[in-house]
Design a protein around this nucleic acid. Structure first.
Length: 503
RNA sequence: GCUCGUGUGGUGUAGUUCGGUCCAUCAUGCCGCCCUUUCGAGGCGGCGACCCGGGUUCAAAUCCCGGCACGAGCACCA
């Protein structure tokens, strides 16, 4: 057999190594003028979870030369009311993540007239009706697959009820506009779904101008049509939303956008945080703010020193699948390390410092002496210059390192430690054996520092000494043997404040 | 309960459309070695998976049927 193949098709015997397809898969449908959208609720800043939508949409737009609409879905004034400042937070975070501005920005609350017009149109076309049932009553009709009594209202009944609703003459909960689908539909979620309801709470942008607000399924459907959205990429929890909206689109004679979904992402290492939960913890003083280090917000990640590039690569690596996944933070940290390791200067941080005397007069027979100063590289592989340390007769060692008898002080010399007397004796400038190498700081090179790290739902603070050499506020450094941290505050009279990134 | 979706190593992911080129890709993780005056980075090697059961077929991760598991929707939230 083998011989025959060798004769006929020698290629068939060569085993080809398969190659992994990388990057985003092709978008379905017509991709000649792609318009995508990212539609957050401005009831808080963006979280790492939201950034998936930002990245995937903006990358597809880049791939096809298309556009992204940033749409604020701010049509709930009651359960998830918008925060006025959040609109700008989200725009800034979008720009930070993608490196560019959204192509179009719309706020649903500013387009209310359009939604109310469409609502009136569908009522007049008898595609919808005003339902006066209570939530519980309707729920019963829905599970029993029965029409509610309001379903047979005439168009003129509906229009007059609608006019009362928008005029503010009806109470919250007393009436709702439902899209007329079919109460016998097998999927209960689609049976006469609610489109607009009465809400009288103040809206931070338009105040109390409107008494009737559209629900997501209606607002989003209309706005996607208005913006000419060609592709919707959303969580698969919104699959029924697609089905509800498709029914409306069919009634209106519109073509529904191509729709893609992603599954649920659970971030291991972060607790379970929803925007609403974080918001209430902030409002009741439990958390200092949205940028609290242990929160999975973009602001917190940025504060710690994650690069926008790492977040982008992370989501692109996970890709667009409908699988529900649990990913450890380690994954994104590893991506970030690779990006920043090449750029970060090295510094020393000594935790639990203990002060020692350096015996400058060597007692042993060798003629070695400690140098007056030493040069340490700012980066072990990349040429960035040096840090110069002046050697005095006193140094700091980390407590955990200092109870070993023979050590090598990194960059300086092999020494003998006398822990009880707090004395250090020179043994050899040259490396003489394979004793362990420790980090240290000469007195005079140190600043007090605190290192704040997130620890599941709280911050832990470590006090120590930082190497005081060209520290720039906002910069991320690698503290050797420890990990990456960002200098958040560098004020002359107080300890340097470091925030932990990762190791 | 009804409806929908998803199951590939520890974690992700490629391959599933159109069965053979898959003794299954890549990354991360873990283990070992090398390098290194960081417990970092880098290099090399290793570990480890097609949810289960039938069926179709010369041939199934891929197609069909039946289970099972997990997740979601059935809100006057998004």
């Amino acid at each position: 057999m083998k011989e025959i193949l060798e004769e006929l098709a020698p290629d068939a015997l060569v085993r080809k190594k398969q190659v992994k397809n990388t990057g985003l898969k092709e978008l379905p449908g017509d991709t000649s003028a792609v318009i995508l959208r990212f539609a957050p609720n401005p009831n808080g800043p963006l979280s790492l979870g939201h950034s998936r939508g930002v990245i995937i949409n903006s990358e597809y737009a880049k791939l096809y030369g298309g556009k992204v609409v940033l749409r604020f879905d701010d049509t709930d004034t009651k359960i998830k009311p918008p925060i006025l400042e959040a609109y700008q937070w989200i725009i800034d975070e979008y720009e930070w993540l993608t490196g560019k501005s959204p192509d179009v920005i719309v706020r649903a609350s500013e387009r209310m007239e359009i939604y109310l017009d469409y609502a009136e149109k569908i009522l007049k076309a008898d595609f919808a009706y005003v339902c006066n049932c209570t939530q519980n009553e309707f729920k019963r009709y829905r599970v029993d697959m029965e029409s509610c009594p309001c379903r047979i209202n005439t168009v003129s009944d509906n229009i007059s009820a609608w006019n009362e609703m928008i005029a503010g003459k009806r109470e919250e909960g007393s009436a709702i506009v439902r899209i007329k689908t079919d109460m016998k539909l097998p999927n209960p979620a689609l049976r006469d779904w609610p489109a607009l309801r009465i809400q009288k709470a103040q809206h931070p942008i338009v105040g109390s101008k409107y008494h009737v607000w559209p629900l997501l399924d209606f607002q989003s459907a209309v706005e996607d049509y208005e913006q000419g959205i060609t592709h919707i990429i959303r969580g698969k929890d919104l699959m029924d939303s697609t089905r509800k909206q498709t029914i409306l689109y069919e009634k209106m004679g519109w073509k529904y956008p191509e729709t893609l979904y992603w599954g649920r992402v659970k971030l291991l290492g972060f607790g379970k945080f929803s925007t609403s939960e974080m918001r209430s913890s902030i409002e009741n003083g439990e958390y200092e703010g949205w940028n609290e280090l242990f929160l999975p917000t973009i602001g917190a990640l940025r504060r710690r020193g994650f690069s926008a590039e790492s977040i982008k690569r992370y989501w692109l690596e996970l890709g667009l699948t409908q699988k529900d996944i649990s990913v450890p933070m380690k994954t994104i940290e590893s991506v970030n390390s690779k990006i920043i390791d090449k750029k970060c200067e090295r510094r020393i941080f000594v935790e639990n410092p203990v002060e020692f005397n350096l015996n400058l007069q060597s007692k042993n027979e060798s003629k070695d002496e400690f140098p007056v100063s030493i040069l340490l590289e700012k980066h072990p592989e990349i040429e960035m210059g040096h840090r110069r340390w002046i050697i005095s007769d006193r140094i700091f060692l980390g407590k955990d390192d200092s109870n070993i008898e023979s050590l090598r002080l990194k960059g300086l010399a092999d020494v003998k430690i006398e822990f009880d007397k707090k004395e250090i004796e020179l043994e050899s400038i040259e490396k003489s054996d394979d004793r362990s190498i420790v980090h240290w700081l000469p007195v005079g090179m140190q600043r007090d520092a605190i290192l704040v790290s997130p620890k599941e739902g709280r911050n832990s603070v470590i006090h120590g000494l930082i190497e005081d050499f060209e520290l720039i506020e906002g910069e991320v450094y690698q503290f050797e043997r420890l990990g990456f941290a960002r200098v958040e505050e560098n004020m002359p009279e107080s300890p340097v404040k470091l925030v932990w990134l990762h190791n």
